[in-house]
Structure formats: structure tokens, C-alpha cells
Nucleic acid binder design. Structure first.
Length: 222
DNA sequence: TAGGCCATCTGGTCCT
DNA sequence: AGGACCAGATGGCCTA
């Protein structure tokens, strides 16, 4: 994780979120630099799969599950470092074969775990407001998490405002003049009417059109 | 070309 | 013992 990511994680400040919006741009509906057809496939073939299939350098189309999870080839550490006692081409004793087999099994399990994690992140992307389009670059993992957090905060805020409004309506249905301070549901002189300047009025309304407002207006810390 | 993002491998740790 | 989780390392791809 790089320094900027750490900063993003450390705080959910406006600056951090604005930084995200800058990174991902702001199209008419949120994030939006066109990404073009070069978008990387979800789960490109692992080096092992390349090794086995001979399709070096070709990504798996459609982001579908590749089938190498359970059959990593030997000497297949293309992207990552190789363990020290794992000489390629050296004679494989029965023990080393077993160790290698175990290692491959662990690798496959870890790969599946990360794929599940990515699937969950995709699910999260699907329900948070940003431009969902093939021509728009997918939110990064960090951006997804930060945006989701703010979305949750905003929804909670809106819910709270709604509760206050309902409470107010239940109490003061017949009141037509400005509400006496004693009846003001929030104990705030300025909160004469619950919607005035409320998160519900600002965030929800703006959210309907421009999710980027999440960043600017709706990320107050509780 | 540098930086960002990502997938993968790997070894360590914790839990069941 | 085996699986889940985690963090570090590495290399590939893409974009500004």
C-alpha cells in the first residue's frame, strides 16, 4: 500500500475523498474517465495457467473463473518471488514433491479467497452510487471501500433526519406558525424545521443526481 | 517513464 | 493438521 492510500485509509476527510474524485474524474454521473477497451480482465490467467496452457500474456476473457485453481504447474511463480529451496529443474524427491503439492494447494486456496473477496467488492460496487458503465473505469478497491463507508454514513444521516421529521409531524400536526422552541424536536434554535439545511435535504437530493456530492457534503463524522 | 492498481506467491500466525 | 487470514514482495498492465 502506498503513501496516498494510507492517507486515504487514515481519514475519511473531504480532502481524501476529493482526491478520489479527482483520480476517477467526475462524469455526468460520478466517476468517469473513459477507460476504453483495455480494461483488464477480472481474473487473468495465472502464470501457472499460462504455463500450462501456453497462452502466455493473454488474459482470460470475460473475467470468468479460470480453471487453474487446482492445478498450478510447477515453477509457476511468474508474478511473485520463488521460495528459496524450490530449485526449478532440480530433482524432486518425494518429500519435496509433497511440499510442492501442499504449497500449490495453499496457493490455490489463497487465490480462491482473493477471488471471493473481489466478488464481494464487486457486489459492493453494484450497490453504491457511481457510474456503472463498461466504458467507465471500475472503482479501485480503496475507492470502493471509502465510498461505501460514506454512503452508509449518509444513509444513516438521512434516516435520522427522517425519524426526526416523523417525530416532529406526530407532535405538531396542527401547528402553522413557527414552532415554539419548547416543541422544537432537536433542542436547537435553528432547527425550526427539520428539513432546513438537513442532510436529507442536501445529500439525498444531490445524491439523486450527482453521487460526487457524497464526498463534499455527506461525510461528516458522526 | 513513473506511479497506481492489481493478481499472485509466500511465509507467518491464529483458529478449529 | 488443515484452513483462514494477513502482510510483504514481485512483476504485469495501464495511464498521465
Amino acid at each position: 500500500m502506498n503513501a496516498s492510500d494510507e492517507n486515504l485509509l487514515k481519514s475519511i476527510s473531504n480532502d481524501a475523498l476529493l482526491d478520489l474524485t479527482q483520480r476517477y474524474g467526475q462524469s455526468a454521473f460520478g466517476f468517469g474517465p473513459v477507460h476504453g477497451a483495455g480494461s483488464p480482465a477480472r481474473y487473468p490467467l495465472t502464470p501457472a495457467a499460462d504455463f500450462l496452457s501456453g497462452q502466455t500474456g493473454k488474459s482470460n476473457e470475460s473475467g470468468g473463473e479460470h480453471t487453474s485453481d487446482d492445478e498450478d504447474g510447477f515453477d509457476s511463480l511468474g508474478g511473485a518471488r520463488r521460495s528459496g529451496d524450490d530449485k526449478p529443474g532440480g530433482p524432486l524427491t518425494k518429500k519435496s514433491k509433497e511440499q510442492r503439492s501442499l504449497r500449490l494447494s495453499i496457493n490455490a486456496r489463497e487465490r480462491r479467497r482473493m477471488h471471493d473477496l473481489n466478488d464481494a467488492l464487486d457486489g459492493l460496487r453494484a450497490v453504491i452510487p457511481y457510474a456503472h458503465s463498461p466504458s467507465v473505469r471500475k472503482l479501485s478497491k480503496i475507492a470502493t471501500l471509502l465510498l461505501a463507508k460514506n454512503y452508509i454514513l449518509m444513509q444513516a444521516q438521512a434516516l435520522e433526519e427522517m425519524r426526526r421529521l416523523v417525530s416532529y409531524l406526530n407532535q405538531g400536526q396542527t401547528i402553522t406558525s413557527p414552532i415554539p422552541t419548547a416543541l422544537a424536536p432537536f433542542g436547537q434554535a435553528t432547527a425550526v424545521y427539520p428539513f432546513t439545511g438537513s442532510a436529507l435535504a442536501t445529500c439525498a437530493e444531490k445524491y439523486a443526481g450527482t453521487p460526487s456530492s457524497l464526498f463534499k457534503h455527506c461525510n461528516d463524522k458522526p
